[in-house]
């Protein structure tokens, strides 16, 4: 399968099933478009088709290069992975990542929060150290021969239970020595309780910190007020700037991560606002909300959002060439050391490799399913009781979704989010169409940036 498009003056040809990305001139672009529906077309037919536009010599030259790529399986390649990936998914499941909900409570009242002010449709609760220990023990004992394990401290707001975070991290370091494992700890915070002591701790122990910020002050404060209705921008931004600067100097990862909604469809300005504040690892993504929510992204918003991605991509190229570039998470594509095809086609691992743990130790397929009793898998002391659900999640890969079969982005998005699929279609093996449309645009933008920076 071949996907070709023009963007920002570049002709880009993506050979979907090999992952090869080619930047081509108009001649090759036109010839590939003519050939791709019927590869058996004779060279004479191609030459005749372009008579008057390109000389026979030019067409012959283009065909020679195209055939060389085809012979090298870099163009017009086919999907040869299905059997191998399905066999791979039949191997015994190991758990390698936990999302630890150390607090089902929050000191903000974000309007779009899927966790309903951190409480996940339930009651306020903090995870005890004992429950957290049992969760880490569960992870280690179910991780098989996987050495790299991940634990994300999540909420609600995890800093409302910081002492447990600190103690669980220390316990994890003990487990590393005992079992020859490596923990990658991460933490997501709204910044309200962030202080010097917590920053120092995170700089020592957290491989990544996700700092929640939505953009310009008026945007952030509209969507992320405190429980008394006051905005939180002025309180958290100076702390985030200091934290990010420290982590940059230490070579540690962080992300400033926001959500854009129908209220700020000009979100490229929010991304650039972050960059102008000094942040260089940035993520802003579209809200996923019930269609009738006033802040939800609507189908008629898609054109505006795509224009914003174009504007953002062009500005990122300009800043990169000026030596003041930044990383935008949703334009990240690694063309030289990207993940293997098993990873790409298997998806995020929710319900199998990745589980969420509630403050009282219940297991769910991921944080988005927490609070939905239909998806309660078991608990950390007795393990997974719903192996039927695990089997469903295990078979939920790109090949399970008919919508992905003809989509050029399937090796980049991995089939999308099971929770989004459930929320919109009451099944986990479908897709969220607005999300798909925007993912395709982001892939196109990301590849165009690669082309521009390769000039």
């Amino acid at each position: 399968m071949v996907h070709q498009y023009r963007n920002n003056g570049y002709n880009i040809v993506l050979d979907v099933d090999s992952g090869s990305v080619h930047v081509v001139d108009d001649l090759v672009y036109d010839v590939i478009a003519f050939l791709k529906d019927d590869l058996s077309k004779a060279d004479d037919a191609v030459t005749a088709r372009f008579a008057g536009r390109y000389s026979p010599e030019e067409v012959s030259e283009a065909l020679e290069e195209i055939r060389a790529l085809e012979k090298n399986h870099q163009l017009f390649s086919r999907d040869i992975y299905r059997d191998a990936v399905l066999d791979f998914r039949n191997h015994p499941t190991v758990v390698k990542a936990l999302c630890l909900h150390v607090a089902h409570d929050c000191n903000l009242a974000c309007r779009y929060c899927f966790a309903q002010e951190g409480e996940y449709h339930g009651v306020r609760a903090l995870m005890s150290y004992e429950t957290g220990k049992a969760a880490l023990d569960y992870l280690v004992s179910h991780s098989g021969n996987r050495r790299n394990l991940e634990v994300d401290f999540f909420g609600g707001e995890p800093l409302m239970n910081f002492e447990v975070v600190r103690k669980l991290t220390a316990y994890g370091r003990e487990l590393e020595k005992m079992h020859d494992k490596h923990f990658r700890f991460t933490l997501t915070t709204n910044g309200v309780l962030l202080d010097e002591n917590i920053m120092d701790f995170c700089n020592r122990e957290m491989d990544n910190v996700v700092l929640s910020l939505d953009g310009r002050k008026e945007i952030h404060d509209k969507m992320r007020p405190s429980r008394n209705g006051k905005g939180s921008y002025d309180l958290i931004v100076p702390k985030f700037q200091k934290f990010a600067k420290q982590r940059k100097e230490l070579g540690k990862q962080y992300y400033v991560r926001g959500t854009f909604t129908h209220y700020n469809l000009d979100f490229a300005r929010d991304v650039l606002h972050f960059a102008d504040l000094g942040f260089d690892q940035i993520s802003i993504e579209p809200v996923v909300a019930p269609a009738d929510a006033p802040y939800a992204i609507r189908p008629e918003d898609l054109g505006t959002i795509k224009e914003q991605y174009d504007l953002l991509a062009q500005e990122m190229i300009r800043r990169e060439k000026e030596g003041r570039g930044f990383t935008f998470f949703h334009f990240m594509i690694d063309l030289t050391g990207g993940p293997c095809v098993y990873k790409r086609l298997s998806g995020c691992g929710s319900g199998t490799e990745y589980l969420a743990v509630t403050p009282w130790g219940d297991l769910y397929p991921c944080h988005q399913f927490v609070g939905n009793e239909e998806f309660l898998l078991g608990n950390v002391t007795e393990g997974v009781k719903r192996s039927d659900l695990v089997s469903i999640f295990k078979s939920c890969n790109v090949y399970a979704r008919k919508e992905c079969r003809d989509c050029f982005a399937r090796y980049y998005c991995s089939g999308g989010c099971a929770a989004n699929s459930w929320n919109f279609h009451q099944r986990i093996d479908s897709v969220y169409e607005i999300g798909c449309e925007l993912e395709r645009k982001r892939v196109e933008s990301a590849l165009m940036i690669k082309a521009a920076l390769a000039d």
């Binding site: 390649s77 996987r146 995020c348 990745y354 991921c366």
Partner: peptide, 29 residues
């Protein structure tokens, strides 16, 4: 090549032969 510039070096076919160890990071995105 005169008309085509290929940007990447690692093919998915190659990763089928060598990949699948499961040691990489999970990512819900």
């Amino acid at each position: 090549m005169k008309h085509i510039k290929t940007l990447n070096t690692r093919s998915l076919q190659e990763s089928m032969k060598k990949g699948g160890c499961g040691e990489c990071q999970t990512s819900c995105q």
